[in-house]
Design a protein around this nucleic acid. Structure first.
Lengths: 124, 124
DNA sequence: GATTGACTTGTACTGTGTCTAATGTAGGAT
DNA sequence: ATCCTACATTAGACACAGTACAAGTCAATC
């Protein structure tokens, strides 16, 4: 555990969820000016393999990192401004995929992304 | 309707679904050597706004384009080799998102991506 | 004090997608 | 038929996210 990794972990533990790697880097620099982009990427990659953080690809410009890795959840994304909320739908989409639709795959995971307009963008 | 756009449409109507933009460009060049990358991107963008083609972001390296836009469906992706199948799960995930989990959003769409191993990669 | 090894850094590089300025082209107006 | 105008296309430069890698730093150990 080095100063750099601690800073990255602190940034993710903050109130801002769903940051991009560069946003994490920007906030990390505020706390530790000499930290490099490469280290942030490396550390994020390690946190992801450790299962501490989830990669989210709701938007195709940049991966986002979600520290809320321990409670399974899905995402609700505003199509206009890109804001993201964690949601917990009922039901189990895995059960909705019959064997005849699995084509021999070993299905282990499912991601659900709801899209729509957030209250702000809907009223504008 | 120009020659360039016709070629892009032909490529997408071929048997190869889920091509990336650069794959579309490569196949289009085979039919019309002077077609440029920018035109392929422009044309794909127009087809997407017309609703003729879907953008799929299963893999975060490149968008893929799915000409099967008229029958709603979701995707099953191999975590190892990246191959993609269209699937048609039962159930309606939109109904699984209670109002209390919508945070005032106007939810209009849902994407479901199943992940697992295809038969080839599972046996390897 | 020297060695080791993990961590970090800076930088160059790749891949994907977008933008722009210049050129080409089609169709209508004259 | 020629000109005009609007739009499509092109090539290439650019922007952005992410990766690779060689070299530097630092702490722990011998």
């Amino acid at each position: 555990m080095t100063a750099q990794r601690r800073v990255v972990a602190e940034v993710l533990d903050g109130e801002h969820v769903h940051l991009t790697a560069d946003e994490v880097h920007a906030r990390a620099v505020a706390k530790l000016p000499e930290i490099s982009r490469a280290t942030v990427y490396n550390t994020l990659g390690e946190l992801v393999s450790l299962g501490e953080v989830l990669e989210v690809a709701t938007d195709k410009r940049a991966k986002r990192y979600d520290p809320n890795a321990h409670r399974p959840h899905h995402h609700l994304v505003c199509a206009r401004c890109g804001s993201i909320r964690d949601v917990h739908p009922t039901g189990n989409p895995l059960a909705d995929l019959p064997d005849s639709e699995r084509f021999g795959f070993t299905v282990s995971d499912v991601e659900v992304t709801y899209r729509g307009l957030c209250p702000n963008c809907a009223s504008a």
